[in-house]
Design a protein around this nucleic acid. Structure first.
Lengths: 220, 220
DNA sequence: ATTCGCTATTTTATCTATAAAATGGAGTGG
DNA sequence: CCACTCCATTTTATAGATAAAATAGCGAAT
């Protein structure tokens, strides 16, 4: 069990389980057995339980006293909820980031958007997309808000990887560019409105009619 | 140490410590000693540590690996951040609650607003005010959003009780009434805008000039 | 006076073991 | 077949102990 010098056992277990949940290796609703996980990591139950508490905090797991922990499920309603929350909170973060965004930061964000466009698989796309968003929002300097947005991104990533990987395909994201263009001409309102809409919009329905109508926050 | 049949030791410790943090009995920045708290509750360190993880999740505590846990501090920037997040998220919740609000629910909310107006101390006012908000928002049926709002309310309560109790005084909250009136005439836009503004507005500056200018989310 | 090194003590993180609660299966009765 | 009871087994929650890391205090060197 390799871990960073600063990383505690509990933190490492948290990190690895979170990755598994987000990647779909641990399925929604699946029971998380503290005894099995402890055995797998060569640890005691205690750091496993601490990891569970942290996963709960991130919305990745749900527990019931004395009955164990499950990977949090997701359904269309929750996906819409996450999309709506992201829309509201990312627009708020961008509003506060705007006064701090420099041309160099926007250039960096554009490079991130380019990198996302070049991705060939959904996982690396998701990470690159998340980076793009983070580069624009972090200058808001509001830690609680950014943490909340991170958790919502993790939930989105789960829906994406677990729900619609087959529907995804490489593309150029014109809305990323529209956000950057608005920011460059100093139009904060347009940038925020575009971002809010972008986060909420539905995936590529014209090409994949079987994708369910419902406000999936999949491709923002 | 009394606890509910369903409540685990860790949950009880979480609950009690959260109450102390919100009430100000545990001060911002104060060190939370796992060994002392364990001794106080007649428990081992293990459920105390689990309680710490939960308090962190609620934003009431901050921890550093191997260096312990402190009561989360608050400063004007954080208070403004919480106000902004509440404004965005409560407006979102109300928007989604509107189609589900019945006249009976609005009457109940009005009774809660009346109860808040009658409060003689800031603590009971905070609880009544929170109840008013909750009655309006809960019909949105978005659990993650409501949990997030709850945590933000706890943070607000802390600022309120710990920061400006001396500045508070009983009053009739006309904005609560304005929100209810807008809802009753079916004007969701006005209701949401009033709520957003109400959550963000500054406390009674005209009467207490020494209260710092800064966007305190104190009296919403 | 300040900085560094060393050591003792304290505090945090985790272990092993155990108690309490939940679960599962078998048997019985209607 | 279904519902209930009982008991064995499993799983979760926690206690007490221990190891690892951090902190505090003292003395020596500059």
């Amino acid at each position: 069990m390799t871990r960073e010098p600063e990383e505690t056992v509990a933190s490492k277990i948290t990190r690895i389980l979170a990755e598994r949940i987000v990647s779909g290796a641990l399925a929604p609703g699946e029971k998380l057995r503290q005894d099995h996980i402890a055995a797998e990591f060569g640890a005691s139950h205690v750091p496993v339980r601490e990891a569970f508490r942290r996963l709960e905090a991130q919305g990745l797991a749900v527990s019931e006293p004395r009955r164990g922990v499950r990977v949090a499920a997701f359904d269309p309603a929750e996906m819409r909820e996450v999309a709506e929350m992201r829309s509201a909170l990312e627009a708020l973060a961008l509003r506060h980031a705007v006064p701090h965004l420099t041309p160099a930061m926007l250039a960096e964000a554009e490079r991130a958007a380019d990198a996302a466009d070049r991705c060939r698989d959904i996982r690396s796309w998701e990470a690159a997309n998340r980076r793009f968003h983070r580069l624009l929002l972090a200058p808001c300097g509001m830690p609680r808000l950014l943490r909340t947005i991170d958790d919502l991104h993790a939930a989105s990533a789960r829906f994406l990887v677990g729900g619609s990987a087959a529907a995804w395909e490489p593309r150029v994201d014109v809305e990323h560019r529209a956000i950057l263009a608005a920011l460059r001409r100093g139009d904060a309102d347009a940038a925020c409105a575009t971002l809010a809409r972008h986060v909420k919009r539905i995936g590529p329905l014209p090409r994949r009619a079987r994708v369910e109508q419902g406000g999936y926050p999949l491709f923002g």
